[in-house]
């Protein structure tokens, strides 16, 4: 059973030869390869080489086409500052609080900013691994992109003070994500992941998620499925238990759960949705391989009878994670196969 078949079976609650394991390795792949994060985030071919090298090194079940959370915002007009040892940050926002939202243009993924490099990364990943491992394309969610375009504080105040303008902004950011995701799938990505940290109940009340975000996530996932995605994946970190029950309405095949969510609660709330999680990200920096192994085996055993589970970190594997900890995660399920 190859990784694509394994993930496909997990999503369908079918039989797998072992628990699929997908640590969320983004630019940790660059650090592992000794490549500056800023270079990794500018060069699609380099990103693909690092992702494939990490997959060979650890033996996990997917690679990710993701540079940083600023790709879409930069393509729209935010200015980023790049760093060698961490992700790019926004130096100036595309949108001032009083700017007209209809003045923004949806960027063309084939020409705008680093989007074409990300498409090259997907092409190179598919050329390198074919249909052995899923290539997961990461698209920033509508609310998170709104924050990248005008700043987190300004976007949240806009949501509260001028809900109609905020909805207009969410409409725009949804169109950006839609076009970006469709282009990544057309370039060969197997899976579309929507990364929406700003939709967490730690950031906005669950009613905001339900009323403002859910319909737009539904739009994205529906379009990605029509564009041929093997699976859709919703990634929201933090204490998401109050909103998990909405995920099937959004059309998410895979639901990420962070360390703050009890996996059995999540399984009860989402009986027919594949879950991924939920090791504490910081454990990969601070804990030992033995501790990681124990936790991974515990999680795999919890879901053995149910199925519909991908062993994963609750959020991204930190850049500075100890490689032996990531290796311990993968070894925990491989040794049980």
């Amino acid at each position: 059973m190859n990784a694509i078949a394994r993930v496909r079976a997990a999503v369908a609650f079918g039989e797998t030869d072992r628990t699929p394991v997908i640590p969320q390795i983004f630019a940790h792949a660059a650090v592992l390869c000794g490549v500056p994060v800023g270079d990794y985030a500018h060069d699609g071919a380099l990103l693909a080489r690092c992702q494939m090298a990490a997959a060979r090194h650890y033996g996990h079940d997917a690679v990710f086409a993701f540079m940083d959370a600023g790709v879409e915002a930069e393509a729209v007009g935010s200015v980023l500052r790049y760093h060698s040892a961490q992700y790019a940050t926004v130096a100036s926002y595309a949108l001032a609080p009083d700017d007209a939202i209809d003045g923004l243009a949806v960027p063309d993924p084939h020409v705008a900013g680093r989007m074409p490099e990300l498409l090259r990364a997907v092409t190179a990943l598919r050329a390198g691994i074919g249909d052995e491992l899923p290539v997961v394309a990461v698209v920033l969610g509508p609310m998170s992109l709104a924050q990248q375009l005008m700043g987190a504080e300004a976007a949240l105040y806009l949501a509260a003070d001028e809900p109609q303008r905020f909805e207009e902004l969410l409409g725009f950011t949804t169109r950006v994500g839609l076009r970006h995701g469709q282009a990544l799938l057309a370039a060969g990505a197997h899976v579309a992941l929507v990364f929406e940290p700003a939709g967490s109940p730690a950031v906005v009340p669950p009613a905001y998620f339900r009323e403002l975000l859910l319909p737009r996530l539904g739009e994205l996932f529906s379009a990605f499925r029509q564009a041929g995605a093997l699976a859709t994946w919703l990634h929201i970190a933090g204490p998401t238990a109050p909103i998990l029950g909405n995920y099937p309405r959004a059309g998410a095949d895979i639901a990420n759960i962070d360390y703050e969510v009890d996996p059995l609660d999540a399984a009860r709330i989402l009986p027919r949705t594949c879950l991924d999680g939920n090791l504490r990200s910081l454990s990969f920096v601070l804990d030992s391989p033995d501790e990681i192994g124990v936790e991974c085996r515990r999680l795999a055993a919890l879901f053995e009878a149910r199925g519909g589970f991908i062993l994963s970190s609750g959020c991204e594997i930190p850049l500075e994670a100890r490689p032996e900890n990531v290796a311990a995660m993968v070894a925990a399920v491989q040794s049980d196969s």
Binding site: E153, L156, Y157, A160, P201, A202, V203, P205, Y208, P239
Partner: peptide, 15 residues
Amino acid sequence: TVEAFNLLEIMLVGR
């Protein structure tokens, strides 16, 4: 509480 805490509501009260 830790389970029922969100940034937006606190921001609005704080403001």
